[in-house]
Simulated assay, not measured.
Amino acid sequence: MNMQFSVLASGSTGNAFYIETDEHRLLVDAGLSGKQMEQLFQQIDRKLQQVTAILVTHEHSDHIKGLGVIARKYKLPIYANEKTWKAMEGLIGDIPTEQKFVFPLGTVRSFGSLDVESFGVSHDAAEPMFYVFHCGGKKLVLITDTGYVSDRMKGIINNADVFVFESNHDVDMLRMGHYPWNIKRRILSDVGHVSNEDAALALADVIGDRTKRIYLAHLSQDNNMKELARMTVGQTLTSKGFAVGEQFHLYDTDPKIPTDLVYV
């Protein structure tokens, strides 16, 4: 079975991820307006009305901004855990009961040949969770919005073919930047976001023989740069003995431009 994906948008201004198999087309998060989401789909030669379900990671606005509008317009089922559903009340408008589904944390739900495994992360949301996608012997991991990557998480995401992995900020840029201290403290905390260096150290523990692609995701527009994230992660992994660019390749993501739709 074939599995294709695109990081439609990634960053502090909005996040959306698309994955498809021969049977299903799933959208993970809809953190941009309905119009912006439709434009992103056009760029990968797909249409929103082809989506069969939406999975939600957590209730922060950069992940659910367009969720209600899209779900109502295209009558799409939404999957989220109970605490996230409760936290989204009043944020996404009324969703018909027949479109609301509970996807408990730490469980696996099958969409045809695609098995989706949910797992918890450490972030300041009600019950944030991300996903591992299994199909046809392939494994794709989506993990952003976590303050750190625990041994439990590493055990779940280990040795994926593809990682879409948070590399949110450069610590020095963040510390010297214009953000108020309370915001800096939140980002640097265990329920904030993973830095470039910490992303590399975590990746060093989970990259396996089958790993071929790593997408650095959820980069801060104010406290990071694509080149800096790629350089920091690449140099750290090289220092750990990995042949970056030979064993696997590092890829950028963007808040407005989707990555190419490619096979896992």
Score class of each variant (00 low, 15 high):
Lys35Ile: 11
Asp29Gln: 11
Gly66Ile: 01
Asp124Pro: 00
Ser239Thr: 04
Pro180Gly: 05
Phe111Pro: 06
Met1Ser: 13
Val244Pro: 03
Ser61Phe: 09
Phe165Pro: 03
Glu227Gln: 14
Phe119Met: 04
Gln49His: 15
Ala243Ser: 14
Met225Ser: 15
Thr146Leu: 03
Gln42Met: 07
Phe111Ser: 12
Val69Leu: 07
Pro128Glu: 08
Ser110Trp: 02
His134Leu: 11
Ile207Arg: 03
Val51Asn: 07
Gln49Leu: 11
Lys154Tyr: 00
Arg46Phe: 07
Ala199Ile: 08
Ala9Met: 03
Tyr251Gly: 01
Val121Lys: 03
Trp181Glu: 12
Arg72Ile: 09
Ile44Val: 15
Asn223Pro: 01
Gly137Thr: 06
Met173Trp: 07
Val233Arg: 04
Met225Cys: 08
Phe119Glu: 02
Val149Cys: 13
Met3Pro: 01
Asp260Ile: 05
Arg210Pro: 01
Asn81Phe: 12
Val206Gln: 07
His178Trp: 06
Asp124Met: 08
Asp124His: 09
Asn223Gly: 07
Val69His: 06
Thr211Arg: 05
Thr259Phe: 08
Leu219Trp: 05
Tyr74His: 13
Ala80Asn: 03
Gly241Leu: 08
His249Cys: 12
Ser12Phe: 11
Gly31Asp: 05
Asp254Ser: 15
Val7Asn: 09
Gly208Pro: 04
Val7His: 07
Lys240Pro: 01
Ala71Arg: 02
Leu32His: 03
Leu91Trp: 01
Leu76Val: 02
Met231Ile: 09
Ile54Ser: 04
Gly192Leu: 05
Lys184Met: 04
Gly112Ala: 10
Ser110His: 14
Leu105Ile: 14
Val141Thr: 15
Tyr74Thr: 05
Met129Glu: 12
Asp161Cys: 06
Glu20Met: 10
Thr144Asn: 12
Trp85Gln: 05
Asp254Arg: 00
Phe41Asn: 01
Met231Glu: 14
Phe163Ala: 06
Thr146Asp: 03
Glu59Ala: 05
Gly34His: 05
Lys83Cys: 04
Phe17Tyr: 15
Glu227Met: 12
His123Ala: 11
Ile156Val: 15
